[in-house]
């Protein structure tokens, strides 16, 4: 996924964590998930992302998730922080 300098990041590359790269704008929600457990939890990760985007009414966004086996709570938390950081950057 290509990002500009408008993108924000959140999280780490430690085991059990994830790294979120997020940029507001574009058309619709582009979500890319990279995870070793994608076969079993790719869908769960996508749902976590959608829950947060819905909660903040973010409809146009690019998100890349580099997951290292994080649980749902961590995925939701990291995406939420990234969304808040991106909104703050836009001055919203």
């Amino acid at each position: 996924m290509e990002f500009t300098d408008k993108a924000v990041k959140c999280g780490t590359d430690k085991k059990g964590d994830l790294l979120v790269t997020l940029e507001l704008g574009g058309n619709g929600r582009e979500i890319e998930i990279k995870s070793k457990v994608e076969k079993k939890f790719g869908e769960a990760i996508r749902q976590d992302v959608l829950i947060i985007l819905d909660a903040f009414s973010v409809n146009n966004v690019k998100i890349q998730i580099d997951d290292l086996g994080a649980l749902d709570f961590a995925i939701k938390a990291r995406v939420e922080t990234a969304v808040k950081r991106a909104l703050a950057k836009e001055g919203k």
Partner: peptide, 13 residues
């Protein structure tokens, strides 16, 4: 900010 969100979601879930 990230730590707050993490603890919040952890305690919720």
């Amino acid at each position: 900010d990230a730590a707050r969100d993490l603890v919040k979601h952890y305690l919720t879930d």
